[in-house]
């Protein structure tokens, strides 16, 4: 009996070790992917054109300059600064986000019509980013530790060798029950993501539609997120993309929210 028990324990332990080794690989892949996707360079700038397309084909445009600067490690703090060009009546509106891992973001919005800066509570990182199908997390990244990751398989996707990772949220209050990501083995960028709802039905699909090399960094310059249930799609394209341009820390302040320096936003 004793011997049987020992063998059993040995088997379980070895499986557990094997399993965790597996998980570690998946976690590693996701970490690398996050670095390639959202933490590339010291800082980053792009002119972002967002097209929100309804099921009926109606379109809404959001055009902005997005500035990002990393503070600390990959997966660590980041600051975002956004200046809106479109829609026309929100021209001069600015939006700033301090992103912290494992903690609620800080967000500020400048409303030019009443010349007022307001803090915006950010309890829900899964809420829509400026009315699009992307969530705040889709834009600035989700903490790797918030999900359990496992490597499902490796396969060719769009002619590229890729890992398929299944990520299951640890918390229950997330809008999806799991996510499948196809990660390009060559540059670690996500090529496609599928979100499954609580009923296990596919409901949102992310796809990287154009990848360009910018200053040696492979960058997704066209992407889309489609909500299969509402039929709503958001298409995003980047132009004037640049890295390591030397954004000052001082840009990310309430003062510059009201009066953003032209050289950064143009």
């Amino acid at each position: 009996m004793k011997r049987f028990l020992i063998i059993a324990i040995a088997v379980i332990v070895s499986f557990a070790l094997f399993g965790s080794a597996f998980a570690a690989t998946a976690d590693e892949i996701m970490k690398k992917s996050q670095a390639a996707f959202l933490y590339q360079g010291k800082d980053f700038k792009a002119r972002v054109m967002m097209k929100l397309v309804s099921k009926g084909g109606q379109e809404r445009i959001r055009e902005m300059t997005m500035l990002r600067k990393n503070f600390g490690e990959i997966g660590g703090n980041q600051k975002y600064f956004m200046y809106f060009f479109q829609p026309a009546d929100v021209k001069d509106m600015t939006f700033m986000v301090y992103k912290y891992p494992a903690k609620d973001d800080d967000r500020w919005l400048f409303i030019p019509a009443i010349n007022m800066v307001r803090r915006i509570a950010a309890q829900d990182k899964r809420s829509s980013f400026v009315g699009s199908d992307f969530t705040y997390e889709d834009v600035s990244g989700r903490d790797i530790e918030d999900d359990m990751h496992s490597l499902m398989k490796e396969e060719k996707f769009g002619g590229k060798d890729s890992y398929v990772i299944k990520s299951t949220p640890k918390a229950a209050d997330v809008d999806y029950s799991y996510k499948l990501s196809w990660i390009d083995k060559a540059n670690n960028l996500p090529l496609k993501e599928e979100y499954y709802d609580k009923r296990g039905e596919l409901y949102k699909v992310f796809s990287a539609d154009e990848i360009k090399d910018v200053k040696g960094f492979p960058t997704i310059t066209k992407r889309s997120m489609k909500n299969l249930q509402s039929g709503h799609t958001t298409e995003v394209s980047y132009s004037k993309t640049d890295y390591n341009i030397g954004i000052d820390d001082s840009l990310f302040s309430e003062r510059f929210l009201k009066q953003p320096p032209k050289k950064w936003i143009e």
């Binding site: 309804s54 009546d89 019509a113 009443i114 809420s127 009315g131 509402s230």
Partner: peptide, 30 residues
């Protein structure tokens, strides 16, 4: 509010964080 800019910006502010359908249900895209 008194001006069109205020209204436009308030609506935008609302659309930044609320569920998209909240606004879609009451006003069209243009």
């Amino acid at each position: 509010p008194e001006t069109k800019e205020m209204i436009g910006q308030y609506i935008f502010l609302f659309s930044m964080s609320a569920k998209p359908s909240d606004l879609d249900n009451v006003v069209d895209y243009p």
